[in-house]
Computed example of a mutant assay.
Amino acid sequence: MSAWLYIILGAVLLAGAQTGVRQLRMPPPRCSWCTRASGHPVTGHTNTHCQGPLLAQQQRADIDARHQRDLDRKDRQLTEQSARHQAVQERHATRLRILQVGTITTRRTGRGNRIVLAGWVFDRTAGPSSTSAVHGTPEPISAMGAPEKIHGWTLPELHAMAHG
């Protein structure tokens, strides 16, 4: 019986030795992703434990997010530009024809500066807000501060015409 014990013990030791030799002959675990990325064999971890693909995916997501923010910003800029252009077109459509160029002066009053437009004649029968007013009736305009529109014209436009 003791011979059988030595046979079994020898078989177990032989199996353990063969496993140890196989372990020594096996190359260490390699990561194919890191090997492709670096161009050199990378050992120490396997593909399942590699952080490289996760980092690359995060970088792609960051780039995509930056690109989307740029696209959104450009869309907002185009929308704002289109709205400004449309507002200018609408203002130009409401302009009354100028029959006589007048003057623009600034007068100081107790409540601030007063912009006074005098001598301007607008053709009210030609514009979109045509009335039954007599053609070319002078309409004195006096405005406090800086009004944005006067019959479709802005103060800088009228000022440029007055001082041409």
Rank of each mutant, 00 (worst) to 15 (best):
T103A: 08
G112T: 02
S82R: 15
R97M: 06
L99G: 00
D62P: 04
G39F: 01
H67C: 06
D72V: 15
Q59S: 14
C50R: 01
P41Q: 14
A56Y: 05
L71Q: 06
R84V: 04
T94S: 03
I98A: 03
H45F: 00
Q100T: 10
R97K: 04
E90S: 12
R66D: 15
Q89N: 08
K74P: 05
R108D: 06
A61S: 03
H92T: 05
I63A: 15
R107I: 10
G112V: 04
T109C: 05
Q81D: 15
R60H: 13
S82M: 12
G102N: 01
V42M: 01
L71G: 08
R84S: 08
G102K: 02
T109K: 08
V88D: 13
T106M: 12
T103M: 03
Q77W: 12
D70A: 14
Q89P: 04
Q100M: 03
E90I: 11
K74G: 08
R95D: 04
R108K: 06
T106Q: 09
H49E: 07
D72F: 07
P53H: 02
G110N: 15
R84D: 14
L96P: 01
I104F: 01
L71P: 08
Q51R: 14
D72I: 10
D70E: 15
D70I: 15
H67W: 09
T94W: 02
A87V: 13
T106V: 05
H45D: 00
V101W: 05
E90L: 14
S38E: 02
R107W: 09
S38W: 01
R91H: 09
G52F: 07
H45Q: 00
L78V: 12
A83L: 12
P41Y: 11
C50T: 00
R95S: 04
H85S: 11
R111V: 11
R107P: 02
A65F: 14
A65M: 14
Q58N: 06
A65N: 10
G110R: 13
H85I: 07
R60Y: 04
T103V: 03
S38L: 02
L78G: 09
V88P: 09
L54Y: 01
R111S: 05
A83G: 12
R73C: 06
D70G: 14
I98R: 03
H45C: 00
T46Q: 11
T105C: 06
G112K: 04
A61I: 00
T109L: 05
Q51H: 07
L71T: 10
A87E: 08
Q57A: 11
G44Y: 00
